[in-house]
Design a protein around this nucleic acid. Structure first.
Lengths: 166, 166
DNA sequence: TATTGTTATACTCTATAACTATA
DNA sequence: TATAGTTATAGAGTATAACAATA
C-alpha cells in the first residue's frame, strides 16, 4: 500500500512529501530485498552481520543499532546461525549475554552484501544529475537529525495477558 | 522497526539512502497520523475523502488512486460512513458499482485535513535551507518517475483455500 | 531488584479466496 | 465470461508478557 496525501490538481502548492518519501523508500526497499535475496540475506541479516563484524557485540547491542526488538533479534540470529554465517558465544564478562561472532563464511558474505547495498544505493543516485545527489543526501540528513528526528509515538495498544498453556 | 543498511564508519563512501528514506518517511508518517488523528481521520480516510470530493468516483477508482486493495477500501469507506463523512450511493450507470459521495460535514473535514497535510509537509520543508527545498522535491520526483518508479515484486506467497465454515 | 535472551502468543495489517449481483 | 463490492480469514510481521538464568 501507499498513501497519497495530496490531491494532484495542477494548482497544488505544497509538494506531496509523504508520497515522495513513502514511494521512493518502498521501491528502494524492494530493490534492496531482491538484491540481497540473491545471496540469501534479508536486510536485517545484513545489518546484524556488518555490525557484528565491526566489534564484539551482544544481541541487545545489535538490536539497538538496527532498531529492532530483542525478540526480532532472536529470529534474525537464528537465521544467521542456520546459514552458518554467525554463532552465539557466551560473553566472557556477563554470563547472561551472547556475543554474536561472525564466521569466516559470514565475513565473506558481509563484504559481498555491503557491495550489493552500495551498488543499489549508487544506482539510485546515479539516476540523478550530479548536482542533485549531494543536495538530496544533505537535505535528508538534515531532516533526520533535525525536524524529523523523532517519531510521534502512537498510544500503546492494550494487551491481554498470555494464556498459560497448562 | 528501521533498517540500517550501512556501517556508519567515517570511511563510508556511499550515503545510506535506505536509512535516510526509511527514517524520514517513518517519522513523517507518524507526525501525519498524529495530526490527522486529532480530527479523527487516518491518512487513508483523508486520501479517499479528498479524491471522492474532486469527482464522482467508485470504490475501485478510489482504491486505485490511493493504491489500496479493494478490500482495504471497504473498511476505509465503512469508517467514513460511520463518521458521517461519506455515503455509498448506487451508480446510475452501473448497478454493481457504488459512488462515494462526500457529505457536507465530510467536505468541511476534507478541507481541514488538507490544511493539516499541507502544514505538516510545510513544517518539514521549512526545516531546510531554502535552496535545498526545491532540489529535494525535484530529486525525489525524479527518482519516483525514473529509477525508483516500479518496485521489484516479491514472489507471491502461496495461499491455502479458505475453509468453508459449514 | 534489574537485565539478557528465550518462548509463546496476541494483535495489526493487508491481501487472497470465495461469493453475490450485475455487466 | 468478467467486474464491483462484500465477507471471512490466512499469513506476515512485530511486539508484549512471562520466564529462566544471571547481575
Amino acid at each position: 500500500m501507499l498513501d497519497v496525501m495530496t490531491a494532484m490538481s495542477p494548482a497544488r502548492s505544497t509538494p506531496d512529501l509523504s508520497f515522495l518519501l513513502d514511494r521512493t523508500g518502498h521501491v528502494l526497499r524492494s530493490r534492496m530485498a531482491a538484491a540481497l535475496g540473491e545471496i540469501g540475506l534479508t536486510a536485517r541479516m545484513h545489518c546484524v552481520l556488518v555490525h557484528a563484524l565491526e566489534a564484539e557485540r551482544t544481541q541487545i547491542q545489535l538490536a539497538e543499532i538496527g532498531d529492532m526488538d530483542k525478540t526480532t533479534m532472536v529470529v534474525t540470529v537464528d537465521a544467521l546461525e542456520r546459514a552458518g554465517l554467525a554463532e552465539r558465544r557466551p560473553s566472557s564478562t556477563d554470563r547472561r549475554a551472547r556475543i554474536i561472532a561472525v564466521t569466516e563464511k559470514g565475513a565473506q558474505v558481509a563484504h559481498e552484501s555491503q557491495r550489493i547495498v552500495d551498488r543499489v544505493h549508487a544506482e539510485a543516485l546515479e539516476a540523478l544529475p550530479e548536482d542533485e545527489r549531494e543536495v538530496l543526501t544533505r537535505a535528508l540528513n538534515r531532516l533526520v537529525s533535525g525536524h524529523l528526528a523523532t517519531p510521534v509515538e502512537a498510544p500503546a495498544p492494550v494487551r491481554r495477558a498470555r494464556r498459560s498453556e497448562k
